[in-house]
Amino acid sequence: MKFRAKIVDAACLNHFTRVSNMIAKLAKTCTLRISPRHLNFILSDKVASGGVSMWCELEQENFFNEFQMEGVSAENNAIYLELTSENLSRALKTAQNARALKIKLTNKHFPCLTVSIELLSVSSSSRIVTHDIPIKVIPRKLWKDLQEPTVPDCDVSIYLPVLKTMKSVVERMKNISNHLIIEANRNGDLNLKIESELVCVTTHFKDLGNPPFASENASQDRNPARMAEVHVDIRKFLQFLSGQQVNPTKAICNIVRNKVVHFDLLHEDVSLQYFIPALS
């Protein structure tokens, strides 16, 4: 098992830092999957702790100038590591304006992801900051729980509105209720609803548009105005929204009635899939 990679481009470095900040907001601990072409940040919560899952994918070519890896074996050419996501984002904080960033898998008394950052300095000698992030190598037999989630056949697929508006709405709603109802139809309407003994609040988003490919889905019913709804834990949804610091280039919400809501976001060349299961 070997892994070493290097970023020298400032834009790539910033982008990578942003991704790692987003991951830190979305998941406390996550799995990092390293394969010859991709890096993935994976979260797959136990049902008991909410059952949220996440699959974030970066194409390594778009970020790294050098990228070498050797997986556990030739036929399973991948590495799965578990790490505390904040450790990575904290390490990358020092990387602002850095000249280069190197990440490698090391073993210093315990397995580590070593992040070394070459910083510019006034004098000609450069300074190097090194962070050793403790990791756990995930054995082959547990990989099956960490596969790319299949997107379920959804009842409604809809483009999301500006996430910032959604976030402020959901933040207020959270003060009133723990339960959020997300509903949408194929006319481009999306509603966020809470209902409590004291108050019912519904926010209506209109004319959002539906992604074209979804309308061909056979499982959808004929009436485009019919709402598909899903009840979710409002804190999980807010956590997802809080993680989005930059508005994504594309954001889609897929609802499987009373089962799951799936968010599919694209930030330039990073894709993020986030699943929140329905509350029973």
Binding site: P161, T165, V169, E197, L198, V199, C200, V201, T202, T203, H204, F205, K206
Partner: peptide
């Protein structure tokens, strides 16, 4: 964007 609130 419209929000409707019904407060008892």
């Amino acid at each position: 964007v419209v929000t409707v609130c019904k407060i008892n």
